[in-house]
Amino acid sequence: MTAPLVEMRGISIAFGGIKAVDDVSVDLMPGEVVALLGHNGAGKSTLIKVLSGAYRADAGEILVEGQRAEIATPRDAKRYGIETIYQTLALADNVDAAANIFLGRELVTRWGMLDDAAMESATRQVMARLNPHFRRFKEPVRALSGGQRQSVAIARAIHFNARILIMDEPTAALGPAETAQVGELVKQLKAQGIGIFLISHDIHDVFDLADRVSVMKNGRLVGTARTRDVTKDEVLGMIILGKCPEAAVRGPGAMAE
């Protein structure tokens, strides 16, 4: 068996004495979609921010393809091919799509000046794939619709050959057509061998797209299961009660039998 694409082992992080994430272990194989589920405040976003370099874990380790990875900043994470689409999208509203997509990784000319034309060209190509109707390349992102902004955030994540993609509530702000589009994209990326962590509230989405689910409650892992082995009701039981079904691998946060 090959090593997982990414493995987080025994991750803990506390803010002001409150353990937001407590001894959580999750893993992700190439071409796999793992959904992270849990109530608001269960610690999903915090866990994922440890992987994306926004937070530093107090304890635990991260392995990328079996090798210990030191991730202290978002830049480190990107070096390992870990890209994140944040729930807030994390776009600079005052600059255009190309500037956002290349933020921190700008293309420059021989003289060290920004190569806006080359960046716009690349942006047009990647957006043609994601959102063929997108035309507003010169406008600040502020002027775009929710779906268009989402496309820009996704384009930023996938343009740089990500191997591991983190999607934090990617469809929360989208209409049904755009949600379906994101679903298509997830399948496409999966086929390319990219591993995806999907954070979602929508259990239907999760059963459509994810191969496995990991459920968190109060900062602890309830358990991990293959979506084909469990029912939606069982997963809801994990989220609400912390009750781990038999088909799932129990985590430290599971309710005592």
């Binding site: 978002p74 509203d93 600059v95 956002n100």
Partner: peptide, 15 residues
């Protein structure tokens, strides 16, 4: 300019 538009986004982008 990115910092002015969204400091958190700039930080998360590796700036």
């Amino acid at each position: 300019f990115a910092i002015g538009g969204n400091p958190e986004a700039a930080e998360l982008s590796g700036v």
